[in-house]
Amino acid sequence: MPDHIHIFVDVRQTVASCDVARTLKSIGAIELFKAYPQLKKFYAKCGALWSGGYFVSTVECISESTVIKYIEEQKDDK
């Protein structure tokens, strides 16, 4: 999956999904820039590391293993 990632997280219902996405993107960018300083130079010239959008879906009636299996199978489709 070279152009996107899947992240499966468990958060309280009182936490807004936009806050989770924003935090993951922010911390992810900080850590990537620390590990790969050349990325910071590149993205300073051409824009943001992450796109502005995100997709969130809730899981209620299926098991954790079903979600993990779905994510793993996405690798085979690309």
Rank of each mutant, 00 (worst) to 15 (best):
A48S: 15
L49P: 02
E31W: 04
Y54P: 00
V9W: 05
E64Y: 14
I7Y: 01
Q74V: 10
Y70C: 05
Q74L: 06
A16Y: 10
K78H: 13
P2W: 05
A48Q: 11
I7H: 07
C61L: 10
K45T: 09
P37S: 09
I68G: 01
S63M: 07
C61P: 00
F42S: 07
A35E: 14
E31V: 08
V67F: 01
L49W: 05
S17R: 09
G52N: 02
A29P: 00
Q74C: 06
A48D: 03
Y36C: 04
H4L: 03
V56S: 05
R22Y: 01
L49C: 03
H6Q: 05
K45Q: 13
R22H: 08
T23N: 04
S26T: 09
I30S: 10
K34V: 09
D10Y: 11
K69G: 03
T66I: 06
V20I: 15
K75D: 09
D3K: 09
G53N: 11
D19M: 08
E31M: 11
T58A: 03
Q38H: 15
Y36W: 04
R22E: 09
V67A: 04
G47K: 02
F42W: 10
L39W: 15
F33V: 04
V15C: 03
D3H: 11
Y54W: 06
V11M: 15
K75W: 09
S51M: 00
E31K: 14
D3I: 07
A35F: 05
E72K: 14
I62W: 08
A29L: 07
D10V: 15
Q74A: 02
G47M: 02
G28Y: 12
A21R: 01
I62L: 06
Q38D: 14
F42A: 08
S63P: 03
V59N: 04
T14D: 15
Q13H: 12
D10G: 08
Y36L: 11
P2S: 10
L32H: 04
I62K: 08
I30E: 14
S57I: 14
Y54M: 05
K41Q: 15
C61W: 07
K45M: 03
I71P: 01
F55W: 12
I71G: 00
Y43L: 00
E60L: 11
Q13W: 12
V15L: 13
L49T: 07
P2N: 10
I27Q: 13
K41P: 00
G28L: 03
L39Q: 06
Y70N: 11
I5L: 11
D19I: 07
C46Q: 12
A48L: 02
G53Q: 01
S63G: 03
S17V: 13
T58I: 06
K40S: 08
F33A: 06
I62F: 00
K78I: 14
G28C: 02
G52L: 01
V15K: 12
I30G: 00
D76W: 09
A44C: 05
A48F: 06
A16K: 14
E31S: 08
T23L: 09
K40N: 05
I5D: 08
Y36P: 00
C46K: 12
V56W: 04
G28A: 05
G28I: 06
A16H: 15
F55V: 15
R22T: 08
I5P: 06
A44M: 10
L32T: 02
Q38G: 02
K45F: 04
I68N: 05
A29W: 02
P2K: 09
E73P: 01
S51Q: 04
D77L: 13
E60P: 00
D19W: 11
Q38W: 13
V9E: 10
